[in-house]
Amino acid sequence: MAARTAAVVLGVLVLVAPAFLLSGYNLFQLTMVAAYAVAILGLAIVTGYTGQVSLGHGAFYAIGAYVTAILMTDFALPYWATLPIAGVICAGVGFAIGFPALRLTGPYLALVTFALAVAVPQMLRAKALEAWTGGVQGIVVTAPDAPAGLRLSQDQFLYLFTLAVALLLFGLARNMLRGRMWRAMVAIRDQPLAAEAAGIDVARVKTRAFAVSALFTGVAGSLGALAVQFVAPDSFSAELSIALFVGLVVGGAGSLPGAVIGAAFVQFVPNIAQQVDKSAPGVVYGMLLVAALYFMPAGVAGALRNGLRGPAPRRSAATKSTTKPQGGTIHVE
């Protein structure tokens, strides 16, 4: 137990250290990694654990970002109060969008969310909503200052604030994904018919997971808006949704560390690739996505885990849980 506490303290120190070692753009990049990590964590909850593919989480990120921007400028709410509101609104939108698709079996969620990802930027640009969204111009967000008494620069405070929220949400996800909900989700992913036969309300669990996942990604959008200090339709095109999806797969769809690795990928790889050629990010994204699916189905996180422990069971929690899934497959005609 003492070793565990020491590890946690060390981990927190390592995470907090950049605030005092880095500055300016480098620190901003890490802030964005933390925000993207939460966004991909949201996606992992529905896609990684429930097996329902969402291609539209960029839309929830956008909605979260806009909710924060609008609440701060039009309603003069403090920045921290906008986060839960953004989360709840995204959960509501997620429920409304997810429910029709998720009560059906088949790839319908991918379809609906793809449509959402393509449609949302156009909605944000639309004349009818311009009074709220600022149209093509977007909204400038005032970045929060560190509370009086803390001697931190704005960048440092933003990083630490984002980090704190991210850690909180990862902790929440970790607890949630250990219990009954997690078992139901994985059962649906791996054996949908058996799950249904075992009395799991498949549509309900899937829709709930999707709403929770939208909530996480919405909060990530709020964090992103605070860090960038600006929201505009062009920042949230369908490419963002696809980038989050690629980050999820490359990082490792069914694991929490995978979300962090995926976030680093989304933040750094396009910048590096862009220096080679304008079309390089697309090629790199596409190639790595396909390669990861074929050769590294558990993503970088999975590969690392296997490298460290040797080919182990896919999740240690699976061996711990008392209701270990029994073998045998169900044949469907």
Binding site: V53, L55, P107, I242, V246, G282, G286, V290, L293
Partner: peptide, 19 residues
């Protein structure tokens, strides 16, 4: 799984678009 199946066509989308 559906993740891999959708993922491959998304990968192709990115590759053909960039190409």
């Amino acid at each position: 799984r559906s993740l891999a199946a959708v993922g491959v066509t998304i990968g192709l989308l990115l590759i053909f678009n960039a190409l």
